[in-house]
Amino acid sequence: MTDIPHLQRPNRALQFYAALFLIVLYVPILLIPLFAFNDSIYVRFPLQGFTTRWFVELWDRQPVWDAFGNSLRVGVAVSIISTILGVITARAITRYRMPGKTVLVGFVMTPLIVPSIIFGVALLVVISRIDLIRPTLYTVALGHVIVCLPFAVATLIPRFEGFDASIEEASADLGENGWWTFWRVTFPGVMPGIVASMLLTFVISFDEFVMAFFLSGNEVTLPILIWSQLRFSQQFPSILALATLILFFSIPLILLAMWINRLGLAPGQIEGDGA
């Protein structure tokens, strides 16, 4: 006899499927750090021995630093802009009864399903038509905001939905106008979502390739640099080292974003009703 409820009994087939899924997804990614520490210019087994010289080599290359700086600047700008736009959009979607709301939601969310190559080409066409604008980091940032906005909105909407509207009314009732109510009540309430959205959109922008490929002109971002260096086989191990660094920096950031977001949504955290 077992006392585990029927629905909670382990399902062997499902466990096998999950394990297979994780292997297919992550083993190729794990190969990257493996070869980044391999003491050989060729990516092949057997491994030759442990080295950190690819990382040292990376450290001394100015173009890598330049590209890193570009990606950082674009990423920070994009995370701030798309999160601000996300707050406005999510609030509008959850608070106001407006005509054409579903159309608006669909419009904001399309970049999730339309391949970014299409957006990239379209933006490039527009930009090349307007003489005043050249492909620069600004145009990359613009493209990234389009890609990131759906993620920001999707992260923020549950925060606004879980937010008791009578809390804002209570603030108005106690004498605060819309602006102060937002700062004193709404903003702290959705803060975890804002932090999560900023981390998430930063990482997406930092790792984004397609938009940057079309829109970056001659100021390259890190993914573009990686791509352009793939042609030179003697550079390859240091590119793996770079990819390893990006991995070890992106994954914790995403996990942190998810954790912060979960943190605030835990039951009992945002409530006005008696618990």
């Binding site: 009578s166 009314e169 009540v185 702290p188 945002i270 006005g272």
Partner: peptide
């Protein structure tokens, strides 16, 4: 308010 609407933060 019926729900009291105490500011949770």
């Amino acid at each position: 308010f019926q729900s009291y609407a105490i500011f949770p933060h």
